[in-house]
C-alpha cells in the first residue's frame, strides 16, 4: 500500500441543466444577431446576417453588440432579446 495520500486540488464541476432545445423553424420568425463587435469579423458578420435574411426570410431581425468576447451577455441584453425566436451568437478575438 502506498504511504502518502495527496489531496486533489481539482474542483468538482457544478451541476448544470442538460438537454438541447429543438432547432426552430426560421421562416417568419424574429432573429437576433448577438456578437462582440470585434473589428476583424465585421465584414463576415454583416455578410452572415444578409445571407440569413435572404435565405430564411425572418419576419424581423435585431442586431446587438455585446462589449467583450468571452463573457456571456448581461441580463439587460438578454431581456432585450426576450421576444426573439432565435438568437445567433458569435464571438471573435
Amino acid at each position: 500500500m502506498p504511504e502518502i495520500e495527496l489531496y486533489s486540488p481539482v474542483g468538482e464541476e457544478a451541476p448544470r441543466a442538460t438537454g438541447i432545445a429543438p432547432f426552430p423553424e426560421l421562416g417568419g420568425s424574429k432573429i437576433a444577431f448577438l456578437f462582440n463587435g470585434h473589428v476583424s469579423v465585421l465584414p463576415f458578420w454583416k455578410n452572415l446576417e444578409e445571407e440569413i435574411k435572404t435565405r430564411f426570410e425572418p419576419s424581423d431581425t435585431v442586431t446587438v453588440i455585446k462589449p467583450n468576447t468571452f463573457s456571456p451577455a448581461g441580463p439587460s441584453t438578454i431581456e432585450d432579446l426576450a421576444d426573439v425566436d432565435l438568437a445567433l451568437v458569435g464571438v471573435c478575438a
Binding site: P2, E3, I4, E5, L6, S8, V10
Partner: peptide, 19 residues
C-alpha cells in the same frame, strides 16, 4: 475521478504525479 485523492510511495513520485 480527478477530484479525488491519490496515493504515492514517496515524495519523488509525488512531484512527478502532480506534473
Amino acid at each position: 475521478d480527478p477530484t479525488k485523492s491519490i496515493h504515492v510511495d514517496n515524495l519523488e513520485e509525488a512531484h512527478e504525479e502532480m506534473y
